[in-house]
């Protein structure tokens, strides 16, 4: 789960602008600009409700965040939401259950699903078998819109419950992931390839997919 926004606290207004590492500003032929305070004052004067929106967003987001944290904690036993890592890992069997619970909580907007392929690897701690990861993002609608994401780890050949019966928008997104990464979705109404031709062999976004394909016309 992750915050969409960088918080309102922009870099503090310094009386002298900080040196520019890009070396682009300060050069001749560049609009000098206003001091930051002056800019903020001017924008605030023209947008009297901006601060209210920020306040409402923060409050609503905190409320939703608490709901989500509680949901994950109580029903799924997940304490750490692993924001920097794209959300917590959830057992594949409870994927659809979590989506339904979140939809009931108010996360009614289906954002995206991203599958990724992790080939078998030898690491110091031991061999990691080939696996797939499917990350799903949902969003709440309206002020304080908050996005929630979680991940599911799948073994090769394992199928994941489709969210298409729950969110019609998942239909094409899941078809795309099936087409490009090769993750199959169980209960999808129409799991065909979306981008590639129907007779295409292989799934292009797998890490071990060779660009030189075996299919004749596209070699």
């Amino acid at each position: 789960m992750s915050e969409t926004t960088t918080p309102a606290a922009a870099p503090a207004a310094a009386p002298t602008p900080a040196p520019d590492p890009s070396g682009l500003t300060g050069a001749a032929g560049v609009l000098p600009g206003k001091p930051v305070d002056e800019m903020k004052a001017a924008l605030a004067a023209a947008n009297p409700h901006a601060a209210e929106h920020v306040q409402a967003n923060t409050a609503k987001r905190a409320e939703r965040q608490a709901q989500v944290t509680a949901l994950f904690q109580e029903r799924f036993g997940v304490g750490d939401l692993e924001v920097a890592n794209g959300g917590p890992l959830i057992p594949a069997a409870r994927h659809a259950e979590l989506a339904r619970a979140l939809k009931d909580t108010g996360f009614t907007f289906y954002v995206t699903v991203a599958a990724s392929h992790w080939p078998a690897q030898k690491t110091k701690t031991g061999d990691e078998p080939e696996s797939f990861e499917v990350a799903t993002v949902l969003r709440s609608v309206g002020p304080g819109s908050l996005q929630v994401s979680w991940r599911v780890k799948l073994a090769p050949g394992e199928e994941l419950d489709s969210l298409a019966p729950l969110f019609a928008g998942a239909d094409w997104q899941e078809r795309e992931q099936f087409d490009l990464v090769g993750v199959r979705f169980l209960g999808h109404p129409d799991l065909r390839r979306l981008m590639m031709p129907d007779e295409w062999e292989g799934h292009p976004l797998r890490r071990d997919y060779a660009i030189d394909t075996r299919c004749e016309p596209w070699r």
């Binding site: 992750s2 870099p11 602008p17 900080a18 040196p19 520019d20 590492p21 890009s22 070396g23 682009l24 500003t25 609009l31 000098p32 600009g33 206003k34 001091p35 930051v36 800019m39 920097a84 890592n85 794209g86 959300g87 954002v111 995206t112 991203a114 990350a135 993002v137 996005q147 994401s149 991940r151």
Partner: peptide, 26 residues
């Protein structure tokens, strides 16, 4: 338009300029 630098980094055409730690974001 406010004062200040336009970029936190210098745009170089260098493959190794930007390195990300392992992670996932949306």
């Amino acid at each position: 338009v406010p004062q200040g630098p336009l970029s936190a980094t210098k745009p170089l055409n260098m493959v190794t300029q930007f390195k990300a730690a392992a992670g996932q974001v949306y």
